[in-house]
Design a protein around this nucleic acid. Structure first.
Length: 827
RNA sequence: GCCCGAGUGGCGGAAUGGUAUACGCGGACGGCUCAAACCCGUCUGUCUGAUAAAGACAUAGGGGUUCGACUCCCCUCUCGGGCACCA
């Protein structure tokens, strides 16, 4: 080593050694296991658990550091914190990998879990590993099955035949929520329709409660998530109207949001795949109808949803009577009407609904304007009008001029006549939970030719998956479980006769709808969860995860929680009191992907810069909820900052416990002000600014040391200790090293949040700004307790202020002590 | 089309209605060094002025409220996200 070799001469922090050392320490001392003895208020911090597909990636690193900061902060504040972790370990990729390698899905799954567990531990998460769970463990899915049975017994799980969403690539059905713009949420294939008998959860029964309880989440969940859920539930107020049909006992009921346009209803449209259509069609029209139905079923969801697509349909040969005009109107079937929404039939008002107008023009059906908006007759313009206007051709309504009055009047008339009533409809559909795949939770139902659908008795749970591997798992469009005849053949629990097991598995979103309850009593052999433990820990105080689950996992979990409440197992309504959606990590403006070749490997980043630097980079990049572009970031700068912080601790030479009050006042003020701000910022989850403030503290402390204070001043120790404690949220390894170098006993995670001295935090002298007509003309250093008269006097004495006044008299002076004086001159 | 967000230096981003541009990146110059890296220091919105003093203009654009607006209100534009033949 040459004399001037500063790099090796200067001590520096070694991330790798620190990482190994402290991981071992935390594991041995169970540092992050909650005391759970009632000695402190409890807090529950939860990250959306991981799906075990390969090792952790940049997205995990971003998401999990946010939750970890909250958990570590609350721990420092003295709360008893539960911060568990587990795996959402059922699902398709494991099955596909097993098919490719002739293996069992469990092999792939549990190997990946081990890899991720090692990476999570290295990443320094303050997790209580004793609560670890995997949804694919029989000890877990036993209780998923138990919950299914509770739903079943309450009539909340039921089977029905319906046209369902089908992914031709995954060869399984999908829930409505898993169809994104007509494509499979997982693989992107165009979704088609199939008629199948499937299991559903009756989430629609909870639509209004899911909506109402959002008031409990207002301001605590991101507004956009609430908006998305509101949208998805899609409450719509309108009326049901009955149309008598000659030759049919029952009138047809339609749902409409515009009952006031009823006089303009010139035909009716029924969804082709609704039972009603097949029932209504006349023999003469049957062949044509069936050909049309067949074509409808072939269309993918992407095609069907396209609004550009020309309207098609077929006349069913029947008529209904408009209850107000008494006129017969033709009944058509057309695929722009959905069988699943409303009643599956609509009254068509072509003059005031663009879709109906397009259809009417295609098939030459009459158009009757009933509201004159002054925009011309839709029959002529081809533009349906939807706004307010003067009612025309509408006996009972003629003369009214706005929608609200029209709707009220018509609703009153309909209920008097018994031909209609006000109705609320929701867009939300029941949750289809059957899946024709192997690697999922078996549905605990036996199908008996005598007794029908029979619940498996609870003492026979879990129904474990049979040991299928390789080709036996290949998707055939029916469940692989059905081909495991030994498994599928069973006895009816009721009559003892031969019966078959339900061969479908549950949607993995069922597994993830209750895992956060299981964390509260993970080892419980007798129950899904211990209600007492749940009462202590739940609801989750802070939930962290991606916005991609805004209407999947989060809606389902809210639904589950309401059902559990109705079952008397819990006494709260919402599972997640606070929600933080972290953004995505992208690279060079785009999501990382193999095809773009812009992926950044988390493991390699950590090898190069260390865990702390990567965590710091993620946090400092911007607001937690914003996407961050790795190309804009500098992990080496983060490491530089951490080295600077670490060096502060090395430079401290005063003894442990040195009285800070004997230290430099200027530095102490900086330390207390910044620590106070950091606390405020943490409450607001403004983690990026937290890091910025800590950088200021480190810079100020360095300046103080080098500027003559040296390492022996107690204020320097205080600043370094503040830094170590606050930094432990972001960079736990460096913080532990600092804490140890400062002579303090491990772990810094339990050091407690330092007390901020309000007297030190409040400045004695402040910069007072003087404005003339709103423009800053002078800045004066003044005592913080300056009085109004003195402030005004000093302000007016400033040369810059006099210059700006240019001899004009002062009309008004506004003083905000001690920071601002605003002077208004005479005009 | 409907519903949410968001527009601030070269870049990521700060700013309870009261000093716009904190912190960092990038850049310039300097120190340390035989040299480089590391590290340290100073400067860094635009324009006028002399690199000063001083001033003008700047938070997508336009208007408003206010002594004072990035912040509140109205209109417009742009970008991002969600939903979408939902009657």
């Amino acid at each position: 080593m040459t004399e001037g070799d500063a790099a090796s001469a200067r001590p520096s922090y070694d991330p790798v050694a620190a990482q190994e050392k402290w991981q071992t320490y935390w594991a041995e001392h169970e540092t992050f296991r909650p005391k759970d003895d009632g000695s402190a208020e409890r807090r529950y911090v939860l990250d959306m658990f991981s799906y075990p597909s390969g090792d952790l990636h940049m997205g995990h690193a971003e998401a999990f550091v946010m939750g970890d900061m909250v958990a570590r902060y609350w721990r420092l504040l003295g709360y008893d914190v539960m911060h568990p972790l587990g795996w959402d370990s059922f699902g398709l990729p494991a099955e596909n990998a097993a098919i490719a390698h002739g293996a069992h899905p469990a092999e792939w799954t549990y190997a990946n879990i081990e890899t991720q567990a090692r990476s999570f531990k290295r990443y320094g998460l303050s997790v209580d590993w004793s609560r670890r769970l995997h949804t694919s463990d029989p000890e877990y899915y036993r209780w998923t099955q138990w919950l299914f049975l509770q739903f079943f017994h309450r009539g909340l799980a039921y089977r029905k035949a319906s046209y369902v969403n089908w992914c031709p690539s995954c060869l399984t059905v999908l829930a409505n929520e898993q169809v994104v713009q007509g494509a499979c949420e997982r693989c992107g294939s165009a979704v088609t329709k199939r008629q199948l008998t499937q299991w559903y959860f009756r989430i629609t029964e909870y639509a209004q409660r899911l909506l109402d309880d959002m008031s409990l989440l207002e301001g605590r969940w991101p507004e956009r998530v609430l908006a998305m859920q509101r949208n998805w539930i899609g409450r719509s107020e309108g009326a049901t109207v009955r149309f008598p049909v000659p030759g049919r006992d029952q009138p047809i009921e339609v749902f409409t949001t515009r009952p006031d346009t009823l006089y303009g209803a010139t035909f009716m449209v029924v969804a082709p795949d609704a039972d009603l259509a097949a029932e209504l069609v006349t023999e003469a029209q049957r062949a044509e109808f069936e050909a049309y139905l067949e074509r409808t079923k072939q269309a993918t969801e992407i095609e069907r949803q396209s609004t550009e697509r020309p309207k098609t349909g077929v006349f069913l040969g029947r008529h209904a009577i408009n209850p107000l005009t008494g006129q017969p109107i033709p009944i058509w079937a057309a695929d722009y009407v959905l069988s699943e929404y409303g009643t599956g039939a609509i009254m068509a008002v072509p003059a005031h609904d663009q879709r109906d107008l397009d259809f009417a023009r295609t098939y030459g059906l009459p158009v009757q304007m009933v509201i004159d908006t002054g925009q011309g007759d839709p029959a002529v313009t081809g533009q349906a009008t939807a706004g307010d206007g003067v009612y025309v051709n509408s006996e009972a309504l003629d003369g009214l001029t706005n929608k609200a009055d029209g709707i009220a009047a018509i609703n009153a008339k309909l209920s008097r006549d018994g031909s209609g009533w006000a109705t609320v409809t929701y867009r939300l559909r029941d949750w289809l939970i059957s899946r024709q795949r192997f690697w999922g939770c078996p549905i605990p139902i036996v199908h008996c030719p005598v007794d029908g659908e029979v619940a498996v008795p609870e003492d026979q749970l879990p129904i474990e998956l049979p040991d299928l591997r390789g080709a036996a798992l290949a998707p055939k469009g029916s469940s692989p479980l059905a081909s495991a005849t030994d498994w599928a053949q069973t006895e009816c629990p009721t009559c003892g006769g031969p019966a078959t097991r339900d061969a479908d598995t549950m949607d993995t979103f069922v597994d993830s709808s209750w895992y956060y309850y299981r964390y509260c009593s993970p080892g419980d052999q007798a129950r899904a969860f211990d209600p007492e433990q749940v009462a202590r820990w739940m609801p989750v105080d802070q939930y962290v995860g991606g916005v991609e689950h805004a209407i999947l996992h989060l809606l389902y979990s809210r639904f589950f929680t309401k059902v559990l409440r109705d079952l008397g197992l819990i006494d709260f309504s919402e599972p997640f009191a606070r929600l933080l959606n972290q953004g995505q990590v992208i690279n060079q403006g785009k999501a990382m992907s193999k095809s773009l070749g812009n992926g950044v490997d988390l493991g390699r980043q950590i090898d190069q810069y260390g865990v702390d630097a990567i965590r710091t980079t993620m946090v400092f990049a911007g607001p937690p909820e914003d996407d961050i572009d790795w190309a804009d970031l500098s992990p080496s700068a983060s490491l530089r900052f951490l080295q600077r912080a670490w060096r502060l601790a090395q430079d401290v030479s005063s003894p442990v416990g040195a009285d800070p009050a004997a230290g430099d006042l200027g530095l102490r003020k900086v330390s207390h002000r910044i620590l106070g701000e950091v606390g405020d910022l943490l409450e607001l989850r403004r983690f990026n600014v937290v890091v910025a403030r800590l950088m200021e503290l480190v810079n100020a402390t360095r300046k103080a040391i080098d500027g003559g204070l040296g390492g022996g001043d107690p204020a320097v120790r205080e600043a370094a200790e503040f830094t170590a404690v606050a930094l432990s949220l972001v960079a736990p390894y460096v913080a532990e090293e600092m804490w140890q170098a400062l002579g303090r006993p491990a772990s810094v995670a339990n050091a407690g949040w330092p007390e901020v001295d309000p007297g030190l935090r409040a400045a004695e002298r402040v910069t007072m700004v003087v404005q003339v007509q709103g423009k800053v003309r002078a800045k004066i250093e003044v005592p913080a307790d300056i009085d109004q008269a003195e402030a005004e006097r000093l302000a007016l004495a400033e040369a810059g202020v006099q210059r700006a006044l240019a001899g004009r008299a002062v009309a008004k002076v506004i003083v905000r002590l001690p920071k601002m004086v605003s002077i208004v001159p005479e005009a």
